[in-house]
């Protein structure tokens, strides 16, 4: 069920990316598909995240003046890196997800720009402002979207209680009397 929900979220993200720039120019600095790809990777479904990344990247590239496959390349790489981070580090709370989405966005922009330069293309947007605005826009939007996705999609989150901070492991108290009596 979760798979269907994330796929639906990805399709909505691609549609938003296709349309929102014509409604308001600043919305172009939010990378909606990247937010969902990172979310899928954070949920621990690494193989699915890779496929989502390639599909979303090519769908975005198809309506862009950039190279076909550039977004697919950068997003696939991001999905893999985030999956590897999730494998090693506990990032299942909102505050830890913020640096993950910010880092993913920065790396995505660097790889995207780098691939274009490597293949002799010059993007029209200026490097520093575009990277900075995309970083700010995607991080803010990503944080809000993760809150919404956790609220509506995740099944393992209890109703009315969201874990913003990592749950602290509680040590079990032992009864000293019983300890002494046991043999």
């Amino acid at each position: 069920m979760e798979q269907v929900k994330i796929t639906a979220a990805l399709i909505v993200a691609v549609l938003l990316q296709w349309t929102l720039r014509n409604v308001a120019e600043p919305l172009t600095f939010i990378d909606f598909p990247l937010i969902i790809v990172v979310y899928a990777a954070l949920r621990g479904s690494s193989i699915r995240a890779l496929f989502y990344a390639t599909f979303a990247g090519i769908a975005v590239d198809a309506l862009s003046g950039g190279l076909l496959g550039a977004n697919g390349f950068s997003k696939t790489l991001i999905a893999f890196i985030v999956s590897e981070i999730v494998r090693r580090v506990y990032v299942d709370n909102l505050l830890l997800r913020i640096p993950v989405i910010a880092g993913a966005c920065l790396l995505n922009d660097l790889v995207y720009y780098g691939m274009h330069r490597l293949l002799g293309q010059s993007p029209t947007g200026q490097f520093v402002p575009t990277v900075a605005y995309t970083l700010i826009g995607t991080t803010i939007a990503g944080t809000i979207i993760y809150l919404i996705l956790d609220r509506f999609f995740a099944e393992n989150i209890r109703k009315g209680k969201r874990e913003v901070f990592a749950p602290r492991r509680q040590t079990r108290r032992r009864n000293p009397i019983r300890l002494g009596s046991r043999r």
Partner: peptide, 15 residues
Amino acid sequence: QVIGRDTSAWFDTSI
């Protein structure tokens, strides 16, 4: 009529 703008912030094409 312009119905779409570039999906990437790096480019400026229109649909």
